[in-house]
């Protein structure tokens, strides 16, 4: 060792007053430096003996902690905090099987659109995040739903985290699929705003209906609007996109005002499961 802990830091560590990040640095150094461990042992009184135990327990746990999976590692790599990545790794719609299903659906829809009409892809792509978000928070799909409901972590924060992650994943997949839509120019990306608007609208409705019914109602409404305006494809024109953005914006404001609903413990789907 070319350096050693300062006496003040050792005393602070023993007295449990050393704050992070100096605490982490001290723990890492103590694990590797026998001389500093001896100095700590000499400093710590009998009552302070716990400090070493706590330090070693933390070190043991850090060494024994399993390596995160690829999705978690990727999230940490792009800057997502470690604990947030672990929360997101439990999102059902972010499992590899779900992502594959979404990728296959997007690809098939793009193929049909290429063979028939691009509007098929534009109409279906916004439904993908809608389904994925519903799958991310619906009772019966998230196996730890009941544990999460009574956890102190804010439900609305958890919901938004999962939505952002799911939207990011589905948007990336749909973007790749839309590259195959030729001759439609920028209009090939006109599924994006409806994706956001439908997701926010669905979240707003879920405060009253529950996640899955809200997604169904929103999806049916979207299908009705697209069908009704199919002649001039209004939704995918500039005016239509502005309209979609306005609806999405209003829904976002309303959702923000309704966020307290998620912190209440009224969970319709849970109460129905009670015998």
């Amino acid at each position: 060792m070319t350096w050693h802990l300062l006496d003040d830091d050792i005393r602070a560590y023993a007295a449990r007053t050393l704050a992070a990040p100096a605490l982490w640095s001290a723990e890492a150094h103590l694990a590797a430096c026998g001389e500093c461990r001896e100095r700590l042992a000499a400093t710590a009184t009998v009552d302070m003996g716990w400090a070493l135990d706590v330090g070693w327990a933390r070190l043991d746990a850090a060494l024994d902690a399993p390596r995160p999976g690829p999705v978690e590692r990727l999230m940490v790599l792009v800057g997502v905090p470690e604990h947030t990545a672990r929360l997101l790794a439990a999102t059902p719609a972010l499992r590899l099987s779900w992502l594959l299903a979404i990728a296959v659906t997007a690809t098939l829809t793009a193929a049909v659109a290429v063979l028939t009409d691009p509007v098929v892809f534009l109409a279906v792509a916004p439904l993908l995040p809608l389904v994925a978000v519903a799958m991310s928070f619906a009772p019966g799909i998230d196996p730890t739903y009941e544990i999460a409901v009574v956890a102190p972590v804010r439900s609305f924060r958890l919901l938004l985290l999962r939505c952002v992650a799911v939207l990011t994943a589905t948007t990336a997949l749909s973007t790749v699929a839309s590259l195959f839509i030729h001759g439609y120019g920028l209009r090939a990306t006109s599924w994006f705003l409806p994706s956001l608007a439908l997701t926010v609208l669905s979240l707003l409705l879920s405060t009253r209906l529950g996640a899955a019914p809200a997604a169904v109602v929103t999806g049916v409404g979207w299908a009705a609007v697209v069908t009704a305006t199919l002649g001039d494809r209004l939704v995918f024109t500039l005016a239509g996109q502005v309209g979609v953005a306005v609806v999405g914006g209003i829904a976002a404001v309303a959702l923000s005002r309704q966020r307290g609903t998620y912190e209440r413990y009224h969970v319709p789907n849970l109460t129905r499961r009670v015998p």
Partner: peptide
């Protein structure tokens, strides 16, 4: 995962 739901965010302390 459950520990994070219980607001234990500091990695080494949580582990």
């Amino acid at each position: 995962y459950v520990a994070i739901l219980k607001e234990l965010t500091h990695r080494s302390a949580r582990h």
